[in-house]
Amino acid sequence: MNFQIVINIVIAILWMFLSESYTFTTFFVGYMLGIALLFLLQRFIPDAFYLQRVGKILSLIILFIKELLLSNIDIVKLVYKPKLDIEPGIFALPTELKSNWEITLLANLITLTPGTLSIAISEDQSYIYVHAMDIPDVEESINDIKDTFEKAIMEVTR
């Protein structure tokens, strides 16, 4: 992946020298040409085409923003409910993610999802302790988090 980005930048700089104008626009055009070349020649270059990974990162960011909007609306609904009929509690969420970076990302995503707030991470990093607004649908939220977030994070990092 890094190798491909370096090649792409080198192609862009080459394009700048070839067209003899040293502005950002020319660099951008050269970069686009580099992407096209890399796309056409991806069979001969080691590793997968790196824009695929960029696309996955973008989809993770979009997921993040979507969950953020939903959770905001959720919390506003709870605030203006006349009667406070919630059953809060802390539950343990088992996670398969290993590295610090992945777990940090998952904990932050959990905090911004509707009704959940990550409180602590166990010593061996196999559980994330999550405070939930409404415990009865814990099973559901565990499955949700496992399905959407862990998959998206794994796709980006592995």
């Binding site: 919390i75 506003v76 605030v79 406070l84 707030l117 607004m133």
Partner: peptide, 24 residues
Amino acid sequence: SSSIGILRFPDVYTRLHAITKGST
């Protein structure tokens, strides 16, 4: 509404829900 949430919710953790989500 997140500041109303701080006033209405019962304990630290539920109030943190209101702060972290509503304010962003």
